[in-house]
């Protein structure tokens, strides 16, 4: 009986999985416009994050937004070309800690939640970005 309830609960929790995989990540993020909006929300999250805001003090916000949008567009296989500097060069000398990198990831997750991006697309994007951790941390 208990087991049956557990299995039933598991089944209910997994129902959203049925609609998981559809289209390219670029499409799931809402194409260029969606990504641009997401990056705007992301920057607003960063701006309110005391853990990492000091790293962004002299950043040109408009350019930062454009570069982020281009980069995510390219990484999600959209029709863009990232025109900014290579990631290690951008972060050189910033000495970003693991905790700060995680804080950035949390801000992005928060932004994706706000923009109602499905968990499946969130995970696809996070996996791509997580692979770049060595180009950001402790440089």
């Amino acid at each position: 009986m208990m087991l049956r309830t557990a299995i039933l609960a598991l089944g209910l929790l997994m129902t959203p999985l049925a609609q998981a995989d559809k289209g390219s990540l670029y499409q799931e993020l809402g194409e260029y416009e969606g990504i641009s909006k997401l990056m705007e929300t992301f920057i607003l999250e960063i701006a309110e994050d005391d853990r990492i805001i000091h790293h962004f003090e002299n950043v040109d916000i408009d350019r930062f937004h454009k570069m982020l949008t281009e980069h995510i567009c390219e990484l999600s296989a959209g029709p863009c070309e990232y025109t900014g500097k290579p990631m290690p060069e951008v972060h050189l000398g910033m000495n970003i800690t693991r905790a700060e990198f995680n804080a950035l990831v949390e801000d992005l997750i928060q932004a994706m939640e706000s923009e109602q991006i499905p968990v499946s697309a969130q995970n696809r994007l996070l996996a791509i970005l997580a692979a770049m951790h060595k180009e950001v941390i402790h440089l």
Partner: peptide, 10 residues
């Protein structure tokens, strides 16, 4: 942990 594992779940 696999961030993007089967069914795009972690």
């Amino acid at each position: 942990a696999w961030l993007d594992g089967p069914w795009h779940r972690t």
